[in-house]
Simulated assay, not measured.
Amino acid sequence: MSNWADLTTGKRIKHLRGSDLTQQGLAEAAGLSLALVQKAEQDRGELSVGSLLKLTHALNTDVSVILGQQAPRRATSQDTRAALRRLSDAVHDSALGGWDGIEEPSTVAELAAAHERVCAAYWQGAYGELSELIAKVLLEGGARYGHTSGHERERLGSLLAGTYQFASSAAILLGQRDLALSALTSARRLAEDSGDAVLAALVESTLSWIYLRSAKVPRAIAVAERAALRIEPSFSKATNPQLLGYGRLMISAAVAASRNGDAASADDYLSQAHAAAARIGHDVAQYGTHFGPTAANTEAVGIAVALGNHGRALTLASRTQLPGSIPKLARNRYRLDVALAQCAVGLHDQAADTLIEVALDAPEWVKHQALPGVIGKRLAKVSTARVRNISELIGMPLIA
């Protein structure tokens, strides 16, 4: 695609509409005539402010994007843009107290069940469903939270904190850093108010991840270390939630240290994560996160890749068995690390097959990952034609 700012407004509208929405569909969604949409895409005449706002809403984007002041995120589909808009509205409206239209919010039990569905949707990469569920919990839970007290308030606070945390994680995956930080600010406040030390620590783990994705590696390490110290367990007496929270924070620190090229620190942190996983003895899922021997092993592969130890990464991978219970996103993030290691040691056919498996298993999620492009460029050095065939098969450009 040409430089976004150099395109005409009509071409920007056409690009945002994409192949999944017809001109008639856009006209109906915006409440405009088909003739007006056609004229807009052909740059015939000036759009009124009202028409521009209606098109913006129908395309689930911002006026600045249509006007060329801000480029859209690469490979973001119409459905994903709609999910992001719902996510943003839910996070900000709930934080600001936007309870309009909520006459009788769901019960705490119903909201708890919705939160469980939030967890499942996140780990499946189902962003449309996820954004709808997050909106339900945040808006209805927030409306109820202001009128409760005692145990019910604490329970609601924990549910809301966990849901804001998922909103933050989804936002950072979809490239929306500011939205992720906004959601996490609310999550942190509610987690601290709930008095749940493990939940508060896991919120900090998400913050560490945001800093890592923002290339603020020392801060990512510091946040994870500080939070881990607050809940550092006595391994002989620790509960599974404490071990899960501590182990996850040690993994956060290890991953960040590996991105900084600090192999010694990464190994130290990782050994603590392995110890916590061994103490639990099996994979567990609590607080909407997964931890145990599988997580420690798969993360060790990614850390070895980041440190350039590709042979070791593949050796570790050969010893790692993925149980059926591993979430889709965790499974495919691990596979991308394996594909990168395969590529680095010259196993190009295997790397290509692994990349195809990931893209077909999680087609929307993979579009928002950086590693497929890295792998594609390395494979292109061997066979550009093969990479173009892969791109066509998975519906995602890997090279320009």
Rank of each mutant, 00 (worst) to 15 (best):
H290R: 09
L316E: 06
F235K: 02
D268N: 07
E232L: 02
A264T: 15
A362F: 08
L340S: 09
L173M: 04
Y145C: 05
G195P: 02
S236Y: 14
L270Q: 06
Y334C: 03
Q242C: 11
Y122P: 06
A5P: 01
I326S: 08
I134P: 00
A256Q: 01
N297P: 00
A254Y: 02
A254I: 02
K381N: 14
R189M: 13
E364L: 15
H92T: 11
L270G: 04
H92W: 07
T56G: 03
A167C: 06
T148I: 06
G128Q: 06
A29K: 01
R226S: 11
H147Q: 13
S88P: 03
S325Y: 13
W365D: 08
Y287T: 01
S208Y: 04
D62Q: 14
D6W: 10
R333C: 10
I303E: 04
A278G: 00
R188D: 15
R44M: 11
L322M: 09
G150R: 06
K328E: 12
A112D: 09
V118Q: 02
H282Y: 10
S234C: 06
L87H: 07
Q69W: 11
S168M: 07
A224K: 04
N240T: 14
N240E: 15
L398P: 01
A191I: 01
L270Y: 08
G142H: 08
V305I: 05
S258L: 08
L67R: 03
Y269W: 09
S106F: 15
H57I: 15
I251M: 12
T8R: 02
L160W: 03
Q42K: 14
F235Q: 02
P327W: 12
L87S: 08
E364G: 04
H290D: 10
A400Q: 15
L21C: 07
L55V: 09
S258Y: 03
S33H: 05
H368L: 10
G157V: 03
A197M: 09
R319H: 15
A113G: 03
S234Q: 08
P233W: 07
A83N: 00
T56H: 07
R74D: 15
H151S: 04
A351S: 03
Y164M: 08
H151Y: 05
K216Q: 13
V223F: 11
A171S: 08
R74W: 15
L179T: 07
S271F: 11
S2F: 15
Q272F: 13
M250V: 11
L59Q: 06
L16S: 07
T289C: 14
I13S: 09
L207Y: 06
G308C: 12
L322H: 08
